[in-house]
Amino acid sequence: MACLLPLVRLAWLGAQGGLGANPIEYITRSTGWWTLSFLMITLSITPLRRLTNLNWLLRLRRMFGLFAFFYAALHFGIYLWLDQFFDWTEIVKDIAKRPFITVGFAAFVLLLPLAATSTNAMVRRLGARRWQLLHRLIYVIAILGVVHFWWLVKKDITEPVLFACVLAVLLGARLAWRMRKARTGGDTLPSAVPR
């Protein structure tokens, strides 16, 4: 429920006239920011679980991922409706011509199959291995999302840099673990030889 607070806040600000002079820009930015934040939260579950051994964290992962999709869908919907008013020729031109929109759109399209295969039934249908392989797309999506933010900012790139740092830590941790596993895996091989 707490994950809905950003949306409630926007609705409340809207009712109070607190969205500033350019409300459409404000809600577009806000939903985009929360999409990135939920992507980061989703990606932090696995490292957190490893560090703390709290296995119940894993059950939250799907919900956080779906909230990332939820805010991404709002963000994209606001762009289509309030920003462009379904002017399809403009939208197609935007997506094709503006690199920051191209990568943002790509990230959203890649999120679609992940959201669609988020149910237990879909995990079973795909098989755990294929499902996991597909869901590694989140790494690509998160990178595209941060690039999207970075490229749209006029000059003050503080926030995109912060997101990039968080993402680098989250992906770096995975890489480090994988490398260590490969190394220790290599070391354990000889010991696996019958003595």
């Binding site: 949306l7 926007l10 609705a11 409340w12 600000l13 809207g14 009712a15 109070q16 006239g17 607190g18 969205l19 500033g20 409300p23 459409i24 404000y26 809600i27 939903t31 709002l74 919907g77 606001i78 409706w81 309030l82």
Partner: peptide
């Protein structure tokens, strides 16, 4: 959309 309606309210 709730949020959109709220955003519009901001203008009014």
């Amino acid at each position: 959309l709730l949020a959109a309606a709220a955003g519009a309210g901001g203008l009014l």
